[in-house]
Amino acid sequence: MKVLAFSHSMDLALELVSAGRELGDVSLLVTSDQEGRINEVKGAKEVLLCKGLDSGDQEGLVELISGLASDYEVVLLASDRRGRELVGQVAHRLGASSAVDVSSLSVEDGKLVVERMTFGGKAIAVEEMSLPAVISVQKGKFKPPEEGEPSVREVSAPSIERRVEVIERKEKPKVGVPLDKAEIVVAVGRGFRKKEDLKLAYELADVLGGVVGATRPVAADLKWMEEEVWIGISGVRIAPKLLIVVGASGQQQFAAGIMDSKVVVAVNTDSKAPIFEQADYGVVMDLYEFLPVLTKKLKEIKGG
């Protein structure tokens, strides 16, 4: 099978090359702003370099990828927001099948079979896709290949009338330790009454050598975290060895993001909160009373 891959993020693009190799030869599309990292690409058959297009141009990308795709059976994109924005548009232009956020792909009897989470994480759907297919691949599932120099071929940028014009772009502050790679995570929810109180969670994370994550409302709505790092089906999926969930109800969309954690602790005043069904150890207490004591005791042990 011939696979065309592209991601706005070069790190995710390298994961896509690896995913694509499960199916066949991979051509990776690289845009002008990514040209500087071309030598990091290993394991692809070729790099298609488009010097006339920036990855910020979504309309241009839909046009370019749809045009190139006629030579391929499968198009792989990343499951970040801009990647997912492209999937449906490209698939429909091609009259292709589509799936997002897939965790595995294989070919069985000439059929492309993928797996993905559905029903807010309560089920895994195994889907049979007709070819051509356009797919976004779940982040962190595939390790970038380490060997194999691709050839480089230049492709020209499409000329179309743009109907969407970017008038402003503001960078967000960068995340310190990526949540999805952290060993220990303290996840905070709306049980915290004000932003300053998150200090309790940061102190706990500090003594454990972990990082702090949040539920979607705390990060995206209240904007209490400097970075947009929420855990869940629409955010990051984490797999730490220890997760301590504090003041979060454990709604399904959040729970979907913590399933791969090894040990889960929940602290919540409401003994009926769904988070207790997702936890190995539950503490039914006020976080304002419990966290300071827990942190103090941990300090005593860690301090010697």
Partner: peptide, 10 residues
Amino acid sequence: KLTIRELKVP
């Protein structure tokens, strides 16, 4: 273009 073959419970 797509059919669900199976739904599994993780």
